[in-house]
Design a binder for these strands. Structure first.
Length: 132
DNA sequence: TCGCTGACCAGCC
DNA sequence: AGGCTGGCCAGCG
């Protein structure tokens, strides 16, 4: 299988998985990779999102059909990749009712215990009886 | 508890 | 062609 086809398969799988995230919920890059059976490549999930086509591109998967804003990092933080990008993501999340808070370092966070969506919970996490 | 480091693997110079 | 870097994560000190 050519690498380009595999890359396209991966991108489509990532976009489809992200579309499963319910409205008003968020998950992590690593969990998307886990859902796809490739837990060791959360970074490639980000790579796909970076190349997500624009809403007016005419592609089936684009920034208006794929809820890219619902994917954040494992610490619940909206990572800043470019100028203003994190702010746009936070605004998109607030628009669907997700609370975005700031910490002492002025970083933006979402509370996973309220808004997290993690359907494939790891066995080790089941034992974890603590909560915040 | 918090900061740093190593690893992972595709794109991008 | 080869090295660098990234929308990350887990482990260790």
């Amino acid at each position: 299988m050519p690498r380009s086809e595999e890359a396209e398969w991966w991108a489509n799988a990532v976009y489809s998985a992200i579309q499963e995230i319910p409205h008003g919920k968020v998950t992590s890059y690593g969990h998307i990779a886990l859902l796809l059976g490739e837990p060791q490549r959360p970074r490639q999930v980000g790579v796909c999102l970076k190349s997500l086509p624009a809403a007016d591109s005419g592609m089936h998967f684009n920034s208006s059909t794929v809820p890219w804003q619902r994917v954040i990092n494992a610490k619940g933080m909206i990572s800043h990749r470019g100028p203003g990008s994190a702010e746009r993501q936070a605004e998109a999340l607030r628009q669907e009712g997700v609370e975005v808070t700031y910490d002492s370092m002025n970083e933006m966070y979402v509370d996973f215990s309220s808004y997290g969506w993690f359907p494939k919970q790891l066995p080790s996490e089941e034992n974890d009886d603590d909560e915040e």
